[in-house]
Amino acid sequence: MSAVVGGAIYVPRADVPVAELPALLLPAYGETVLMVGIVMAIVLVVGTPLGVLLHNVAPGGLFERPSLHAVLGWIISVGRSLPFLILMASIVPFTRFITGTNIGIAAAVVPMSLAGIAFFTRIVENALRSVPPSIVRVARASGGSNLQIMRSAQFGEAVPAVLGGLTIQVIAMIEYSAIAGTIGAGGIGYVAVTYGYQRFDNTVMLATILILVATVAFVQVAGDRLVRWVTPQKRLQRA
């Protein structure tokens, strides 16, 4: 598509026609949804228990282990403090070890999951911390086992806060998927980078922006609805 004119690389301003946008964007959108979906499944399965564990090994938790808390907290902080692009680049050998490749969706899922787990663990920990200690005392006095207390008292009470955090997390993961797009992971981010950025295709750029904004707005509204639904006070006082 490009031609050498006078020694410089010339990129023709041949924007993708509007009619062809769906054919280009829909599969990419599907890839983004798939990527974020897989990552979120992993994040929920690993991050939820990890967050509950982190909260309860902390001083004042159900089974205090200050040293374990310090180590876990430190690992998570490191994971949280690296910018995603750098995290992604720095764990390439690990990613290749796990998936056998360092490009494509599978390769993107590994760093996204790691960053996502670190993110979500903190969200869960934070949500549990906002549950009043008196609730946990009630559950203990009611004869609950640690597992029962964590499930019904701690997590049960924290559900709205966790879902609020989850909404933020999904949006962050959509953003990460776009960054992962730069290593050829596919998805809407990949399209935005290759067409919109490298080829100055304004039509595609604008289309991807619109899609991302709409998606994020939708996730936010859905998340808010969900939080409302699981909070009796908000749900019943709507009328």
Binding site: S134, I135, V138, A141, G143, G156, E157, V159
Partner: peptide, 21 residues
């Protein structure tokens, strides 16, 4: 201890009810 706790019922200040139940 957990079984023993069941023989003592505790009423807490301001009830401390689970808000989503």
């Amino acid at each position: 201890l957990r079984a023993a706790r069941r023989r003592i019922g505790t009423v807490f200040q301001s009830a401390s009810l689970l808000s989503r139940r």
